[in-house]
């Protein structure tokens, strides 16, 4: 239900897969909202997985918490926001040993930011599993003021920092965990098309 097939795009745009249990000493699972469904499906594939798992879940208004807790993971944490959870994520990654498996699922913004933390901890991005679930909103960087606008659902949109009207590019930076937004009316100030919902 919550899986969305992104249209094929340019080579910097991330491609997401389907989470599968991998052999590992320990498993770090970071999810937001409908990403919980992917973790429930993952747990169902391997009954031994949860005893070695740490789930970090950001509900964003959903109520999957009890189901995830019922999986009896070795550690379970529910955070009110990604920003509130990031210190914990960094700590877990910094203290991780060889053999840690990382699973990211939910929105692109959540996966991108958590992947970035894992990369900074020395885990190559190609070793990190991702599965998109839920909202197709994007995390956008304004190329002009560098401010990040979270949860962008339309193209164009207004930069939440500098107020410029930006169009949504597919060009993506793992380092910034964001897509690029570029001024849409630079050559014809004020001529801003009606915003259209992404992928519509």
């Amino acid at each position: 239900m919550s899986k969305f097939q992104f249209p094929e795009s340019i080579k910097s745009r991330p491609v997401y897969g389907t989470l599968e249990p991998r052999v590992g000493k320990f498993h770090l699972m970071i999810a937001d909202a409908e990403g919980a469904e992917a973790i429930l499906e993952l747990a169902a594939q391997d009954s031994a997985l949860m005893a070695k798992s740490h789930i970090i879940f950001i509900p964003n208004g959903t109520d999957y918490g009890d189901q995830l807790k019922a999986l009896n993971p070795a550690q379970y944490y529910e955070g009110p926001s990604y920003a509130a959870s990031v210190q914990r994520i960094r700590h877990v990654l910094a203290n991780a040993h060889q053999g840690l498996q990382v699973y990211l699922t939910g929105t692109e913004g959540l996966m991108g930011q958590a992947q970035n933390e894992a990369m900074q901890a020395g885990i190559p991005h190609t070793f990190i599993q991702t599965e998109h679930r839920g909202s197709v909103a994007r995390r956008m960087q304004c190329v002009h003021c560098k401010g990040i606008t979270e949860d962008v659902m339309t193209d164009p949109f207004v930069c939440s920092h500098c107020g410029l009207n930006l169009f949504v590019r597919d060009h993506y930076s793992r380092r910034l965990a964001a897509y690029q937004g570029v001024c849409i009316d630079a050559e014809d100030p004020g001529n801003v098309p009606e915003p259209v919902e992404l992928y519509k």
């Binding site: 340019i10 080579k11 910097s12 745009r13 960087q141 190329v143 560098k146 590019r169 597919d170 060009h171 930076s173 793992r174 380092r175 910034l176 690029q180």
Partner: peptide
């Protein structure tokens, strides 16, 4: 093109927006 945005990308990624050539 933006160095700040493309920093850390590989050859195919930073050229991703170029049409036809891929």
């Amino acid at each position: 093109w933006s160095l700040d945005f493309d920093l850390g990308m590989n050859f195919f990624e930073w050229h991703a927006p170029v049409p036809l050539a891929h």
